[in-house]
Amino acid sequence: MDSFVESLQARIVTAGESGTRLNIVGGNSKHFYGGAPHGEPLAMGSHQGIVSYEPTELVVTARTGTLLVDLEQTLAESRQMLPFEPPAFGAGATIGGTIACGFSGPARPYRGAARDFVLGVNCVSGRGEYLRFGGQVMKNVAGYDVSRLMVGAMGTLGVMTEVSLKVLPLPVIERTLVFDCSGNDALTKMSDLGGRPLPVTGTVWHDGKLRVRLSGSEMAVESAASSLGGDLDIAGASFWQALKEHRLDFFGGTDPLWRLSIAPPAKMPDLPGESLVEWGGALFWVRGNDPQALVALARAHGGNLTRFRGAERSVSFQPLGEAEAVLNRGLKQAFDPAGILNPDRMLAGS
C-alpha cells in the first residue's frame, strides 16, 4: 500500500477520534452540488495516476485524484472511452469526484450510468480501514456490491482511493440530426427512437429543436441517419460537449437550476420556467424559483427533483421515504460511525 493511503488512514482515524469533520476535495469542480461542504479540507488531488490499463481487457484502474481529462485522453489514445460520458464541470475534475457524484452525460439512457461501469473501488472507510470491493473483472458477485453503493454517495461512506471502470471502444463515427418540432412531438419521437434497434446515443430538445446523436460503425450510423431524415448538424460534436458541460446559453444566468428526473412523460408537463429535455424525455433541466411545483411534478411522474445550482443548498435532494431513510442513515453509520466524512453533503444531519 502506498504512503498516501497510509497517511489518509491515519488522518481519518485521528479525525474520527477527535470528531473532526472532513470535506473531501478532488478538483473542487462540483462543490456546488448537494449540501454545502464544510469541515477540514481533505485534498485528494495529488493522488494521481493510472494504475493499470490494458485496452483489450476493457478495464482501467486509476487513483481517484487522476484528472478526468487525463484519464479520458489516455483512453482516447487507444480509441476507448468512459461510456457514461461524465460531465467534468471544470478542468480540475477528478475521476474520484466524478464517481462520488455519480453524474452521467447525454449517453446515459443509451449506454448506461456511472454506476453501470464501476467494477471495483478501493476506499478508506470512516473507521480509517482500507477496504477493497469489487475488482478489475467484468463479472463479480462475491460479497455485497459496495463499489456501486459508493457511486453517487458523495464520499459520505468512504474516501475512494482507486476505482476500476469498464471502458468501451469509441464509436467510429458520430452524426447529429436536427429536427424542428414541438416539445410534445420531441417526446414522442424520443420514445419511438428508444424502442428501435438504432445506434442512438443522445437526444435533447430545447427551444423548438430536437437533436439526435447517432454513434457507431459508419454503416450503422449512415443507414440510420438516412432513414431518420432531419438536418445534419455539422457542429454536433461541440454541441453535445457544451450540453454535457452545461455551457449552452440555457445554463447561463443566475436563476436557480433544477434537475427533474422522471419517467419519460407522453406530453410536456406544465413547467414553471424555461426547460431543456434530454435522456429520451427522462431528464428535464428547469430554471426558476418554484421548486414546490417541480416537486409535485416529480411525484406525479414517479421521479425526483434535485437542486443543481443556485437556491437554498440545505434542501438539495428530495426527502426519502421513511423506511428508505432509515436504511440510508444506517448505511452511513455502518461505514462512517463518527459521521466525519463529507457531513451534510448528501443526507442532512449526517
Binding site: G102, R108, P109, A113, R115, Y144, D145, V146, R148, L149, V151, G152, A153, L157, S261, I262, A263, W279, A282, L283, H301, G302, G303, N304, T306, F317, Q318, P319, L320, G321, A323, E324, A325, L327, N328, L331, M346, L347
Partner: peptide
C-alpha cells in the same frame, strides 16, 4: 422499501445495486 424507479436515478444511496 421501494428501490430504484422508472426515472433514471433516485435520491439517496443506490439501494437497488446493494
Amino acid at each position: 422499501i421501494n428501490v430504484g424507479g422508472t426515472a433514471l436515478d433516485t435520491p439517496g444511496y443506490d439501494l437497488l445495486a446493494t
